[in-house]
Amino acid sequence: MSIEPRPSPLSALSMRINDGRGSNSLHRSVDESSTNDTGYLDSVLRVIYDSISELNMQLPKHLRVEKSLAEVLLGTGGKLDSLTVANFIVIAEQKLKASFGFPFDLTQDDAFSSETGYFRTVQSLATYIAEMVEKHMSSKALS
């Protein structure tokens, strides 16, 4: 599956979540990412774009999701209904597991709430998942 041109990881990291809904942790992870985070974010974005490609196969043209960091997924201006979000989550979880080698649950801890805003945009979702990967890898390294 082709991956469309996207901003470099560094430019992705330099972008701020500017919709005002992102949580502090989200801002933190974008602003204060380590070099490792940059690597994970890049890999995570690839998986998300790949999942978007697959999701788009079942969507009419006007509802297709753009492969860009600023694309709004849920909330005001979002294109996805609940069925489509669920399908996206299942596709993404499957691909993330194949990429990183451990199972993901993107529905834990109020992932959809407006307070956390993880599913607000592609960027916020990528950051959230990159944090999960980082956390998993750190705990693995410690053990």
């Binding site: 697959e54 999701l55 196969m57 079942q58 609940s82 069925l83 669920a86 399908n87 989550i89 299942v90 596709i91 979880e93 499957q94 529905t107």
Partner: peptide, 22 residues
């Protein structure tokens, strides 16, 4: 083995993964 998706079932009452629907 991904034909059925328990998560999709609980979230949307769709038993099947999108791959199976395609």
């Amino acid at each position: 083995k991904y034909s059925y998706s328990p998560k999709l079932w609980y979230m949307t009452k769709t038993p099947f993964h999108a791959d199976l629907c395609r």
